[in-house]
Simulated assay, not measured.
Amino acid sequence: MAVFTPIELSDISAWISSDFDIGQALDIRGIHGGIENSNFFLDTEKDGKKQEYVLTIFERLSAEQLPYYLDLMRHLANKSIPVPKPLENKQGQILFTLKGKPAAIVSKLPGVSRLAPEAKHCALIGEYLAKMHLASSDFKHTQENLRSLAWWQKTVPQVLSHLSDAQKELLTSELATQEQFFTSEVYALLPQGASHCDLFRDNVLFDPQGTSDGSQDQLGGFFDFYFAGTDKWLFDLAVTANDWCLADNKQDLDPARFKALMDAYQAVRPLSKEEQASWPLMVRAAALRFWISRLWDFYLPRDAQMLTPHDPRHFENILLSRKAI
């Protein structure tokens, strides 16, 4: 999350009071981290009770695209999956316009991030990711993953001039490999549905249940669904594994974390034989996707308050590691 469109309390106080049933807006604070939208913590008070929400102004997604993401979160929340639930205004709407841009307000999840996860955290992620996939099976809307193959094919030519010869060769050869994989018969057989597609450690909260050392952590919830799309569930699992299960060298998969994630996921939704056979290529696809996006953000950045682009070499190294599996 970042801040591209600054918001002051005076910009929203009257709007919150008149359009919503959440009382008076007390404070609004920009959230650091991420690179796509402008995000803020919003504090309100009603009948002496304080509440905290998250306000998002969407910088790239259009008002036509956004109902998919917001309806997906509402669908999952209504099925008891711990995700932010979009807040309705007095007319029952969940998508608004603020400073000429689409905006939404969602509930704030409890807990803290665990950026150095243990195997037990990976197990919780695997369990609830599988539950989320199954809960989305009857979600009626579909929308392509906007950062999938078509976007890779469009973006790679824009970043090639910034790369070394070795990087160009790695990027173009891997893209060609994934083009073949995505058009294969086995790929077509992989189960698919609504997928988070960006379930990194900083998009999950754990509720410490009264402890500070994480010994009794329960899942607080998954958030930041604004890269979600209809995709292969195996891709969603591969994206998650590539971040949650890293070894201490920050590129290989740690055996204990990886086993915990996969065992917990498959206890809820066992992988098909086609998914098992596709794992080596899919985990490379997940690494390629984020290498491309980080190259794009690093070399073709946008201006924003509180924005620090991620180092693209991280996912270059992960891709090289996954190719060696």
Rank of each mutant, 00 (worst) to 15 (best):
D202K: 00
S18Q: 11
G126I: 03
K99H: 14
V283M: 15
A103W: 00
K323A: 07
S212N: 08
K140P: 12
V204H: 05
P312M: 13
S136F: 01
W152T: 04
L261I: 05
L76H: 00
A324Q: 12
K108L: 11
M1Q: 13
N37T: 03
N203F: 00
W152M: 13
G34Y: 08
Q216L: 15
G193F: 00
P270I: 06
L199Y: 06
F40I: 00
S148G: 14
L253K: 09
R302K: 14
W152A: 12
P270R: 14
F298I: 11
L219W: 07
P6E: 01
L234C: 09
S137F: 01
T230V: 02
D303M: 11
A63N: 04
F20L: 04
Q209N: 12
I12V: 12
S184N: 02
P117S: 06
Q216P: 01
P102E: 03
V204Y: 02
F222S: 10
V83N: 10
M282K: 13
P270H: 08
A2E: 07
S173G: 11
D213V: 04
L55H: 09
S164I: 12
N249E: 06
L237C: 05
G23H: 02
I325D: 14
R201H: 01
K250C: 03
R289D: 04
D71Q: 14
P280G: 09
Q266G: 04
H121E: 06
V106F: 04
A188W: 10
D207T: 03
N78D: 12
V268L: 08
M262V: 12
Q180N: 13
W244I: 11
N317A: 13
F96P: 08
Q167E: 15
D19S: 05
T183Q: 11
G33P: 03
A264D: 03
D21T: 05
N39I: 01
E59H: 06
